[in-house]
Design a protein around this nucleic acid. Structure first.
Lengths: 224, 224
DNA sequence: CGTTATGTGACGCGATGGTGACATCCGCCC
DNA sequence: GGGCGGATGTCACCATCGCGTCACATAACG
């Protein structure tokens, strides 16, 4: 079982004490005013609260961002009130996102699980899994819910790139360079054709149409 | 080589004259009492000093914040003394940050470099949450209580704007400029149509009708 | 009940994307 | 070498979409 690391500042920790000691799958840790009180393996999810009338929260955010050991972490700023200036400042201080407190168990866990599923893949190089999609790098073969997807080389690369960047809008430009086609320069509209061909392949393998067009921007691979 | 833009108010500029003319990698520019004296490409780091017994510093802060061209800039207020009230006022006026003067070369450069490194590699998966509404800026997708909301680009922008200004009456004029549609001038009544379309989209995603009409003023996004 | 503000279906224009057809290119086999 | 077949980039056509406007219906207000 994967262990998920969550850091909470003291105040939030108190609020959530009932489940801090309860969950097994998660590592909860307290965050002192001088930084994380313990180190963990792997990426962590940090919730920093605002702390009224003081920069403490922002300052903490900045330090975490600067801290090499926490490089991969996802920092969520917990605002006290829904103030527009506060939000801006939170993001500027390096928060990855924000939400308005107070927090409860469900919110924290939902948020963490959502983020988790986004960043899942990355590690295994031979076999990538994204929900119903399995990409076998060794066999250069993809399956959707067990069903093999008939792909030509370029489509395979495209699908892989989409899967590795699921739930993110990818511009045509990014897709072109993502597939390593700089030379000769490729017409952006060609991406439309790639996507069309990939869609057809996915469809005949029984996947619906997970590739959503975002008008005038690009395409997203929607993964629930 | 990346060029970093730094604005200093006159007083600070004088203090720091020795290195204003010295560094190559930085663009230093003076900030007159009427605003930036020159425009630069890209985000800038602005240091505004407090100016004893006067609101000038705060006023400047406010103006910079309102200035479209400086939208991405980071404003640091330089306090004369470490007063809690002053801090609050600085932040309220839109400063991103403050520090206590007088400044020296090292402090300015350290601060700027720190901010710089923060802003580079961020590919923030910004996920904004407002009660049951989740706006995923990366996937350009909104969900209401988990249910995806089918939105066209303009509606997405509109919803985001509403959410970020929840519980505040927004005039049609503000909505138009908030979505960045200055050119060509838009008929105010068009906003009614936008709202109508957004309402329909929200409704078919199972949200009720969180957009309330305020007769002869505009619309509010009612949250909680 | 008159007046003013808002809701909304319909329309049309420009922009944008989907797609079949075609031209190239490349590797392979005889 | 020549011929073949699959893969892929490009093009052009056209369906579709997004969106601003208008016109009329409806609602709110005093």
């Amino acid at each position: 079982m994967t262990v998920i690391n969550i850091f909470l500042t003291d105040e939030l920790g108190e609020t959530l004490d009932d489940f801090v000691h309860d969950e097994r799958r998660f590592t909860f840790a307290r965050l002192g005013s001088d930084g994380p009180r313990q180190l963990v393996e792997g990426p962590a999810y940090v919730f920093v609260d605002w702390v009224m009338d003081d920069m403490a929260g922002l300052e903490m955010c900045r330090r975490l961002r600067a801290d090499q050991r926490m490089g991969d972490s996802h920092v969520t700023m917990v605002l006290e009130s829904d103030d527009i200036e506060d939000r801006r400042r939170a993001l500027k201080a390096g928060a990855d996102d924000y939400l308005v407190g107070p927090l409860d168990r469900t919110t924290v866990l939902d948020r963490v699980l959502a983020l988790q599923s986004e960043r899942q893949p990355r590690h295994a190089t031979q076999r990538l899994e994204f929900g119903p999609l399995v990409i076998d790098m060794a066999a250069l073969q993809a399956r959707w819910a067990g069903e093999p997807v008939q792909l030509r080389p370029n489509e395979f690369r495209l699908l892989r790139y989409f899967a590795e960047n699921a739930n993110r809008v990818l511009s045509r430009e990014e897709l072109i360079s993502g597939l390593g086609k700089q030379e000769p320069p490729i017409d952006e509209r060609t991406v439309d054709v790639w996507v069309g061909r990939l869609r057809r392949a996915l469809k005949s393998a029984g996947a619906g149409n997970p590739l959503r067009t975002v008008r005038s921007l690009g395409y997203v691979f929607d993964l629930v």
